[in-house]
Design a protein around this nucleic acid. Structure first.
Lengths: 147, 147
DNA sequence: GAAACTTGATATTTATAAATATCAAGTTTA
DNA sequence: TAAACTTGATATTTATAAATATCAAGTTTC
């Protein structure tokens, strides 16, 4: 775990400096449901190298591709989590995230199914969507491999 | 066909008046790849009631939900056309739309597979995406029904 | 054949999202 | 325990997307 790309080693100021953006911007992306930084017991944020890459993708989507934050949120909401998590029909029926299409599953309060026990930050649905074309690849796998 | 909701009966000025927007805005949405109005031989546009509904959804996405045009384009690009069109592995390998994730299939030049012969305006991939949650429903069907 | 439309293109306006600055109060570090 | 960080919240700036206005030239309609 130590020294892995998933180790949450950067403080918010270190992350901001590396990415060349301001601290409030990092907090904004989090409030908007695009990222889930690691949090210490004291509530302080820590960012991993993987987190930084995810944020770089978000920046490109916003600044290069001109996709709004709301748009990114909607795109993230299309990751077929029910497929990745192998939800049962029952699971899906009780899942707020499955019903909704406006925000990613991790922005919902999960109490049922596998998502009630799992940490979203570590979940494949979240990590899969570190790139925008990652969503399409999930959809492709879901529609092609499931026969 | 006559009097059906798919009859292209409105001129651009009539459509603009009904929707409460300007003519250049309608042309903008088309240029951005969000809509495909019917075109007469003389190149003049005609809009159907179904077209108007589609445009109302786009307007809501932009003005209420704050999704940028680029964002909508990216969302439309996630409609699993290969699944709806029952593309073969061969089809997919040669399909520019399948490779790409930035714009909807109808914004690509299709020459191979079933899309080479079909009119995109009449295609289920296009009509399916008249609402934003229509995309999610397509993804759900694709991932759930295909076993 | 004249009036009222359409076409595409360019220039301009306006509305607002994204980013930043700043704040008082709490935490970490050495 | 003092310096340098962090927290969330609010106010402000700035960058630009979305929408519109306007144009000359080509259609349509009666």
């Amino acid at each position: 775990m130590i020294e892995s790309p998933d180790s949450p080693i950067y403080t918010i100021s270190a992350a901001a400096k590396i990415l060349g953006i301001s601290i409030p911007t990092l907090r904004l992306y989090e409030k908007e449901g695009l990222i889930i930084p690691y949090k210490k017991e004291s509530n302080q944020r820590r960012y991993s190298p993987t987190d930084l890459n995810r944020i770089r993708c978000i920046r490109d989507a916003i600044n290069k591709d001109k996709i709004s934050i709301s748009g990114i949120r909607r795109i993230l909401a299309l990751n077929p989590c029910w497929d990745l998590m192998k939800c049962t029909v029952e699971d899906r029926e009780h899942c707020l995230a499955f019903q909704d299409h406006t925000k990613p599953c991790w922005a919902h309060n999960h109490t049922t199914g596998i998502c009630g026990t799992k940490s979203c930050r570590e979940c494949g649905v979240y990590t899969n969507s570190a790139t925008c074309d990652g969503i399409k690849r999930s959809i492709i796998s879901g529609t092609i491999n499931s026969f």
